[in-house]
């Protein structure tokens, strides 16, 4: 298993945000995490990555606890979580993905620069390396974050709404990058909003609404019945694609 989650619960002010989550994500899947607003999708990812305190539960990555698995984990946070007016360049932000591997006090050098440029090339942003991050469009910001995760060279990637408010071109490009990662045997978890594209993008899906409603191969888990239980009937009519 690339990721196992047992009995994970997170509570904000005593109200559970996610409740008793059990997940087993096999290696090499491209998984979408879907659910209504407030279902705890981001909370799940953040709790798994130890970014917020857990009320209960255990998580392991490739059989190891988080502390010993950090180098296996890559992360693309929500685009809005940082200040894009921060005084720095695109190349610099991508290089940040290598800081953890560099260790204390060591500065990024020529090798790191090349790795970062390489990652920028993969997301089609090589021409923007010297650009200030304040001058980027939303899609370019997202690609920059993606490049920063690529240089981490992780085994399992967590992406928090990478498709939020990006144009169609960028969405396509991002999907291709995710599929390329997946093709190299990486496991990718994506918090996703658009039910229409779930079946097209992901081979594995987790339906979440505070609790896990269903999790498994898209063909089995992404059913009309499961969607109704997740969203409470409101969007069932949208699901022409679901069996």
């Amino acid at each position: 298993m690339a990721l196992s989650v047992d009995d994970l619960t997170v509570a904000y002010n005593e109200k559970p945000a996610i409740w008793d989550i059990d997940l087993a994500v096999p290696k090499g899947v491209l998984m979408g995490v879907v659910g209504p607003n407030g279902a705890g999708k981001s909370t799940l990812i953040r709790a798994v990555l130890n970014l917020i305190p857990r009320a209960a539960g255990a998580v392991s990555f490739y059989g190891k606890p988080y502390e010993r698995a950090r180098s296996l984990v890559g992360y693309v946070p929500q685009r809005g979580s940082v200040d894009w007016d921060f005084p720095t360049s695109v190349l610099d932000v991508v290089t940040m993905g290598l800081y953890g591997k560099l260790g204390w006090f060591r500065r990024p050098g020529k090798r790191e620069r090349e790795l970062a440029l390489n990652a920028l090339e993969q997301v089609d942003m090589a021409d923007f390396a010297a650009r200030q991050i304040s001058q980027l469009s939303g899609g370019q910001q997202q690609r920059t974050f993606l490049a920063r995760a690529l240089v981490q060279d992780a085994q399992i990637y967590f992406m928090d709404e990478p498709f939020a408010a990006v144009d169609a071109v960028t969405e396509n490009a991002i999907v291709q990058i995710l599929q390329a990662l997946n093709g190299r045997g990486k496991t990718v978890l994506v918090v996703h909003h658009d039910l229409q594209t779930v079946a097209q993008y992901f081979d594995w899906v987790t339906l979440l609404n505070v609790e896990v409603i269903a999790s498994g191969p898209t063909a089995q888990a992404f059913t009309r019945e499961n969607l109704r239980r997740t969203y409470g009937g409101r969007v069932a009519h949208l699901q022409s694609g679901a069996p």
Binding site: L49, Y75, V82, M96, Y99, G100, R107
Partner: peptide, 22 residues
């Protein structure tokens, strides 16, 4: 000066810094 890159990343994106192993 010594902790320049650590300070920079924690200031820009603390959560990513944590996941990245800082």
């Amino acid at each position: 000066a010594l902790m320049w890159k650590e300070f920079k990343l924690v200031t820009f994106d603390a959560e990513f810094a944590g996941v990245n192993g800082l």
